[in-house]
């Protein structure tokens, strides 16, 4: 698998990352180098082997359905949430007008 300039430009645009022409030119061989390196994994025969999802046996833990049980992951912190917003008005984030 390899990517060309157009593909890299498209991915950058989907991720809303601004990449100049010069950067694009430099990035294509870099990304292709990474892809080729990862592709070496394809040489290993993994027939009948379950995909590994974690390096240690581990199960997904679930949280109880309790509001604001832990202040770090609870709500009611509007000021904190809005603190870094470039624009915040009337409790809302303000963003450049986006209408499709």
């Amino acid at each position: 698998m390899s990517v060309d300039t157009a593909t890299v430009a498209k991915i950058a645009s989907l991720a809303r990352i601004k990449v100049s022409e010069a950067e694009l030119e430099a990035m294509v061989p870099e990304l292709n180098g990474i892809l080729a390196w990862v592709e070496q994994l394809g040489e290993v025969n993994v027939d009948g082997i379950e995909p590994m999802t974690a390096v240690i046996p581990n199960k997904q833990r679930l949280r109880d359905d309790v509001v604001n049980a832990d202040p770090l992951t609870g709500g009611d912190i509007r000021d904190k949430v809005l603190a870094n917003a470039p624009a915040a008005e009337h409790g809302f984030f303000g963003v450049p007008k986006v209408i499709e």
């Binding site: 949280r63 509001v67 604001n68 049980a69 992951t73 609870g74 709500g75 912190i77 949430v81 409790g91």
Partner: peptide, 24 residues
Amino acid sequence: SNAKLFSGAATAFGAEPNAQVSLV
């Protein structure tokens, strides 16, 4: 549910804007 799918913020309808938003 009382809380959101991946955080402890409340789900109740009609709250003040961004009052039910966690850092997650």
